[in-house]
């Protein structure tokens, strides 16, 4: 079962690296949207650093959302998803593997780019480790919940806007706790409570989301 998980992660990573150009897109999107805020609101240092936790995280939600589509779309169209269910291994494990692979492709690069964004938005140095931790814990939750939405809309043409409608309200707790932790860290308040709750959310999502994703994929295939 564990080797099946590793195999599916390796397979998805391989497929992703064959289309290298697409790998950068969510990150570029992220950087561009963050850049829009100082241009649209104000380049004022004080103001931006107050706005920054929200900007970093709202943008992260949007970037996660637009990169989510690719997790099942191709596999759904060419029938690979059906093969997951025909396999001798439990589909939830294989699906978890796909989500992990997807997070490694889209979530992990965000981890690298986020400290840079923090500098652009004048987040104080002492808050950057917190930001890093929230992204590390928060983005897998986004991938897990987003995959449910993608699984439900997999059979539809142009499900992109619909996906946002389904998934964004479910992302709200992640946004609140993650940006809350960063805000707390900026003002020097204790933030471990927020981070702990994010961690609890990740564990809950890890347990329940694969079940929901597999049930949703079955619905979409029928």
């Amino acid at each position: 079962m564990f080797s099946a998980l590793i195999t599916i992660i390796r397979r998805d990573l391989l497929v992703a690296f064959r289309r290298r150009a697409e790998l950068m897109n969510p990150i570029l999107f992220y950087v561009i949207v963050v850049t829009l805020f100082p241009l649209g609101v104000s380049p004022d240092k004080e103001f931006l650093s107050q706005l920054a936790p929200g900007v970093v995280w709202v943008t992260a939600l949007l970037a996660a959302l637009i990169s989510m589509e690719s997790i099942f779309r191709q596999d759904f169209d060419d029938g690979s998803v059906e093969q997951l269910f025909l396999s001798q291994h439990p589909p939830t494990v294989l699906i978890l593997g796909k989500v992990i692979a997807h997070w490694l492709i889209t979530g992990l690069p965000m981890l690298i780019i986020v400290p840079l964004m923090a500098l652009l938005l004048y987040i104080p140095q002492q808050a950057i480790p917190t930001l890093f931790i929230t992204v590390l814990i928060g983005t897998p939750i986004l991938s897990l919940i987003g995959a449910i939405g993608v699984a439900l809309t997999a059979g539809l043409r142009g499900g992109g806007v619909l996906l946002g409608l389904l998934v964004l309200p479910l992302y709200i707790p992640v946004l609140i706790f993650a940006s809350g932790a960063v805000s707390a860290a900026i003002t020097g308040l204790p933030y471990s409570g927020h981070v702990a709750l994010l961690g609890a959310g990740l564990i809950l999502a890890l347990i329940l989301a694969p079940l929901a994703i597999s049930a949703s994929l079955k619905i979409s295939m029928s």
């Binding site: 449910i148 439900l152 059979g155 479910l170 329940l208 049930a215 979409s220």
Partner: peptide
């Protein structure tokens, strides 16, 4: 199929 997808979303929502 639509009703089943909506059901799934409603259940996910109730957990959330």
């Amino acid at each position: 199929v639509a009703a089943k997808a909506a059901s799934m979303l409603a259940i996910v929502g109730v957990v959330n």
